[in-house]
Design a protein around this nucleic acid. Structure first.
Length: 478
DNA sequence: TGAAATGTTGGGGCG
DNA sequence: ACGCCCCAACATTTC
């Protein structure tokens, strides 16, 4: 009997620690061939956007380096996944394929077809959970249905057996006698032609080492202060783990156990990891939600699609400092503080009445942590049309949110330098500042910084009125 | 994981 | 001393 040859198909699990597919292949014995296949067309409308592709490139470069230190390699291919795997199997004589599961609807369908096709060819195929604390189908209500309310979901999760301890990095990854051909990472063209990513590089170490450092740093001083500081965008109060978790550069089980060891102060952050699982739970059970509201009646909401306003929002020129600061942080670093995400998203949907899908698309293209489950949950939550959503009539006041969570204006001043001459009293409402204050701050409103694109009070009443009309038309669902 | 409008309470100024 | 009013502070309701 010939020896085993196993393919390990890397996807959003670009690490060696707690990598169940890799560990299973190593444990099986024989040769192990790590593979990455670039096949964006199979992810359909929600193939990774620009910011995420940039990160993906760096993450793959890091994974190549980590594998080479283990005297292994990463074989890179491009094209339909099944075809690419089939070619590799033919070239190498592989008799097994291992991978970790993904939960995006297009990929669930594709992967189950691939699994069946490979099994039909007599291959050994095994898939694993590498991305979640709890699999979407493990968590069920008493009547066996998926959860739609987070707290109930999370209580149920906490009653289940705790997620497993992370697996160690394999000691050795046995190489094949002959490596199959591989593309160069550069050949995938994941990086932009024009280098717009300087701000990303300043802001992030996009490697597994960077992920480990991020987790370690957060689990120290910031963690006990998390519930106090997480809403303060000028502080480093949040974990900033989201891109690492998305690309699997740190295992969520590693994060879970590291944080939990810190004791009682950890539950607030663990709950946030719970929201991440909940988002995947919803995406898996309600696969239409990236494009359609979970509460179907909202499909008929009287949205507006004003391209000039959308552009103002995207470029951080709405005239509301907290919104604009967030949108500029996003553009520069590929990330936005969560509190500001809520405010900026709410502004697009409720002040400008732009369909939440437009916002989801922009975040999808610009966030390095763009994740279909989280993005979908977040936008439907803001629009009031999703599971456990904010009621539609809950309209964030961008001035009050700014004053509450950026009381000194430090965050606004950092991202909107043209306002840096204003003090805390006016920085979140420059249009109300006395003329002499604006003058001495060197600001000509409407020139250096825009006047508000819409009046808050007007917008608030308009959105409530729209909701009211709409609700009457759709009494059954709203 | 709101904000605004409305309602209630209680202290103090003042006739 | 007492009632009245004002209004800030807080609570509740409504959107």
């Amino acid at each position: 009997m010939s020896k085993h040859i196993s393919l390990v198909w890397f996807r959003l699990d670009l690490r060696l620690e707690d990598q169940p597919a890799l560990s299973a292949a190593v444990r099986r014995g024989g040769e192990v061939i790590p593979v990455f296949i670039d096949s964006p067309q199979e992810e359909g409308r929600w193939a990774a956007g620009g910011a995420a592709l940039y990160w993906l490139h760096q993450a793959l470069a890091d994974l190549e380096a980590l594998l080479e230190k283990k005297n292994s390699r990463l074989i890179i291919r491009k094209g339909p996944a099944l075809e690419s795997l089939g070619q590799l199997i033919a070239e190498t004589g592989a008799d097994a394929v291992f991978w970790n599961r993904r939960y995006e609807p297009e990929l669930v369908k594709r992967d189950s077809l691939i699994k069946q096709a490979l099994k039909n060819k007599g291959l050994h195929v095994e898939t694993f959970n590498s991305a979640l604390l709890f699999e979407p189908w493990e968590v069920k209500t008493g009547s066996g249905t998926p959860f739609k309310v987070f707290t109930a979901f999370w209580n149920k999760c906490l009653a289940l057996p705790s997620p497993a301890e992370p697996l160690a990095v394999p000691g050795k990854i046995p190489s094949p006698s002959k490596w199959p051909a591989s593309l160069k990472l550069k050949d995938l063209g994941l990086e932009p032609r024009i280098d717009w990513a300087a701000g990303f590089r300043e802001s992030w170490d996009m490697t597994c080492g960077g992920a480990a450092k991020c987790l370690k740093d957060f689990s120290g001083e910031p963690l006990p202060r998390y519930l106090n500081d997480r809403d303060r965008p000028e502080l480093r109060g949040t974990s900033r783990l989201s891109p690492y978790l998305h690309f699997g550069q740190v295992s969520v089980r590693r994060a879970w156990h590291t944080i939990r060891k810190e004791g009682r102060s950890s539950s607030g952050y663990l709950r946030q990891l719970g929201w991440r699982d909940f988002a995947h739970h919803l995406l898996f059970h309600f696969p239409e939600t990236p494009d359609k509201p979970l509460r179907e009646a909202y499909a008929d909401f009287p949205w507006k699609n004003d391209n000039a306003l959308i552009k103002a929002w995207q470029t951080g020129k709405t005239g509301y400092p907290i919104v604009d600061a967030g949108m500029r942080e996003l553009w520069h670093t590929g990330w936005m503080h969560n509190r500001v995400r809520m405010v900026a998203a709410s502004f697009l949907v409720k002040h400008l009445l732009v369909p939440w899908q437009r916002g989801a698309e922009w975040f999808w293209d610009t966030l390095v942590d763009a994740d279909l489950a989280n993005n979908t949950l977040g936008w439907q939550w803001v629009a009031g049309c999703g599971a456990d959503a904010a009621p539609y009539f809950r309209v964030f006041n961008p001035v009050l949110q700014g004053e509450k969570f950026d009381p000194e204006g430090a965050y606004v001043r950092r991202w909107i330098p043209e306002l840096s001459g204003l003090g805390a009293k006016w920085i979140h409402r420059p249009w109300e500042a006395p003329a002499e204050i604006l003058f001495s701050a060197g600001i000509q409103l409407g020139k250096d910084y825009p006047k508000p694109v819409v009046d808050h009070e007007f917008a608030r009443r308009r959105t409530l009125a729209a909701y009211d009309t709409f609700k009457k038309q759709k009494p059954a669902e709203a």
